[in-house]
Amino acid sequence: MTDPQHDPARALSAYLLGTLGFDALLALQRRLVYEAGGPRPVASLVVCDHPPGITVGREGSRAHIRPSPEQLHARGWPVRWVGRGGGVMLHLPGQVACYPVLPLAALGLTPAGYVAGLQAVGVDLLRWYGVTAEPDPDRPGVRANGRRVAHLGVAVRGGATCFGLVVNTDPDLRPFRDVRCDGDPAPMTSIARESSHRVTVPGVRQRFVELVAARWGFDRISLFHQGPGALPRPTPHAAAHRP
């Protein structure tokens, strides 16, 4: 019988990375997904934000983006088509992205169960800030007072999850009038707009780590402020035991 204290699937490596370009995110996710799919599955969480831009998931459409290519170029909003579920996401400063990389089989989860759990993390986050929110079953994400406050788009690659939930902490909401995020006709809202509490990006980042760990039962959390590529290499005694 496996000792839960030594079950690698119950340990979470959380990377709090600040602003992360999309190319860097994709490279990091590929590495973490590879590690999550190995014989000793490793669960990870990337919490970051992105430079301004638009990503389009499998359920998105160019029709959801109102500005012309020239206007997008002038605003400095590159458009990227990415292999995840969900629709169009507009990335702006003041958002926090929560990207768990979890081995689904090791955690006994189905893809749909994971999506529901990630929505519940968003609802729990809003509740912590005193906002009543609900998951959106039609266009996965989180709604508060009828407007979307977080959008969700994930992928399952090699049995591990990637991409995730992007929540509006305190961004400028005016640009959302030009982009129908996830095809929703109403512009988005933010936690700061809906909450009477003090809302900060670092606070939301920390809360995400705690909520993800609680939701899926991770009892050991390792926090990193650099990606795994920038971390020290294995110690010499570990390297010496390699075959």
């Binding site: 499998r58 996965p140 788009g153 690659r157 090699g158």
Partner: peptide
């Protein structure tokens, strides 16, 4: 065996088939 050969969509997620 194990190569991703196809992809299906459920609401919010794109899932590989191997």
């Amino acid at each position: 065996e194990g190569d991703r050969v196809a992809e299906v969509l459920i609401p919010g997620a794109a899932v590989d088939v191997h």
